[in-house]
Amino acid sequence: MQYLALPFFISLLITLLILRFQHLHGKYTADHDLTGVQKFHSRAVPRIGGLGIMVAMVVMIGWLFISGNSDATAFALLILASSPAFLGGIIEDCTKKVRSLIRLLLTMIAAALAFYLLDAGVFRLDIPFIDLVMAFWPVSLLFTVVAVGGVANAINIIDGYNGLASMVSVLMFAALGYVGFLVGDTFIWRTALIMMGAILGFFVWNYPRGLIFLGDGGAYLIGFMLAELSVLLVTRNPSVSPWFPLLVIIYPIFETVFSIYRRVIVRGGAADIPDAAHLHQLVYKRMVRWAVGSKVAREKTTRNAMTSPYLWFLCSVSVVPAMLFWQHAWMLQLCVGAFIVLYIVLYRRLVHFNAPRWLLIKKARQDTSSDDEKA
């Protein structure tokens, strides 16, 4: 239990200190852009929530060594490997000058470090003939760095509303830790618990009021750790299908793939140009905004927080089957296909203003004259 509780309280305390002394660093660390297409907050908010998570993980390194834990060295090497991904994100949070391509490349460098330090490489996909190619380390290295960078970027993409990316990540770490426990891999389930505790310490201050944001540093750090635990779980345990972590993380992965398709193929633009057409943004616009009508800051924050549970539920639709069928590649493959179909159907219905009625939150009758109703 200490693997969950200790990082929780450390992250909780560090994040509280960041909030308490916001007047000293807010000029550099707060998100003052309230008008961007992906902005849904009403005041400047610190976006260095990832700092509390990283501090909690660094403190846990010391605690593991002091307690004589057998996983201390591996955990320290993993955190060391994560540093390029985290630093690229946290510098962007403070300077707003680190391009998305640079952050992606830094995350790939971090993946290469983990490949070298921990042998964290994707060497099999349980697909005939392809596994023969994956056995060559240069191919495995290339596939690994691209996959890890993609997952980290995917978590950053879904980080759009209070509590969305953080709670989705907790669910994913829980699934990885559960299977790690089943196969007796202490490093996997202990690291998963540490990540869950650190993220929940941040979550207390982020949801529902959005007092602090995860930021690029936090998103890339969490995404890197999700990807690396997925890789290590499969590499260290032949009984675990590679399709298990894919199904666990399919929501942010497919959100990223679909976003690239929408921006490049459908609209003929660049893949890294922000827009307001992600699934979570459509849920906000088509389903949640009817719950409250006023555009005052308090109600905007309410709508923001009410969006995230929809996506928590969507994430659980893939996480739960993954935990049930973690050994059965064909069942996992069917579930991956089913989730993709579900995502596309839901997205299409939201685009055409045809959201399922049972999912709609309707505002009270006395609020029928509000601005949002007229919009």
Score class of each variant (00 low, 15 high):
Ala56Ile: 11
Arg103Pro: 01
Arg124His: 07
Arg124Thr: 01
Ala147Ile: 00
Met134Phe: 04
Ile79Tyr: 10
Leu105Gly: 07
Phe115Gly: 06
Arg99Met: 01
Gly121Asp: 05
Val145Trp: 00
Ser70Met: 02
Val151Pro: 08
Ile157Glu: 02
Gly163His: 11
Leu64Ile: 00
Gly149Ile: 07
Leu78Lys: 07
Val122Ala: 06
Glu92Arg: 10
Thr107Cys: 15
Leu101Pro: 00
Asp159Ser: 06
Glu92Pro: 06
Val122Glu: 10
Ala112Ser: 11
Asn153Phe: 06
Ala114Gln: 03
Ile130Phe: 15
Gly163Phe: 09
Leu132Asn: 13
Gly149Tyr: 11
Phe123Met: 10
Trp137Met: 05
Ala147Thr: 14
Trp137Gln: 13
Ala110Leu: 09
Gly149Ala: 10
Val58Asp: 10
Ala72Leu: 08
Ser140Val: 01
Val151Ile: 15
Phe129Cys: 08
Leu78Cys: 03
Ala76Gly: 11
Phe75Leu: 05
Ile130Pro: 02
Val148Leu: 13
Thr73Asp: 07
Gly68Cys: 02
Ala154Glu: 10
Ala120His: 13
Leu101Lys: 15
Leu132Tyr: 05
Tyr116Gln: 14
Leu106Tyr: 04
Ala154Thr: 10
Gly88Ala: 03
Ala74Asn: 07
Ala114Val: 02
Ala114Trp: 03
Gly89Glu: 04
Val145Ala: 01
Leu80Val: 11
Met57Thr: 12
Gly163Ser: 03
Thr73Asn: 09
Phe86Pro: 04
Leu105Ile: 14
Tyr161Trp: 13
Thr73Val: 12
Ile90Asp: 05
Leu104Arg: 14
Ala147Met: 04
Leu113Trp: 11
Phe115His: 14
Asp71Trp: 00
Val145Tyr: 01
Gly62Val: 07
Ile61Thr: 15
Ile91Asn: 06
Lys96Glu: 03
Pro128Ile: 07
Asp126Glu: 12
Ile130His: 04
Pro84Cys: 11
Tyr116Thr: 13
Ala85Glu: 14
Ala135Ile: 03
Leu141Met: 09
Phe115Ile: 12
Met134Ala: 07
Ser83Val: 11
Ile127Phe: 05
Ile155His: 09
Gly149Glu: 09
Ala111Gln: 11
Ile158Glu: 12
Met60Gln: 07
Ile158His: 14
Leu132Gly: 09
Pro84Ala: 10
Ile90Leu: 03
Thr144His: 02
Ala81Thr: 05
Trp63Ala: 06
Asn153Tyr: 12
Phe65Ile: 03
Leu141His: 04
Ala85Val: 11
Val146Ile: 13
Asn69Lys: 12
Gly88Ile: 02
Ala154Gln: 13
Val145Glu: 00
Leu101Trp: 08
Ala112Lys: 06
Leu78Met: 14
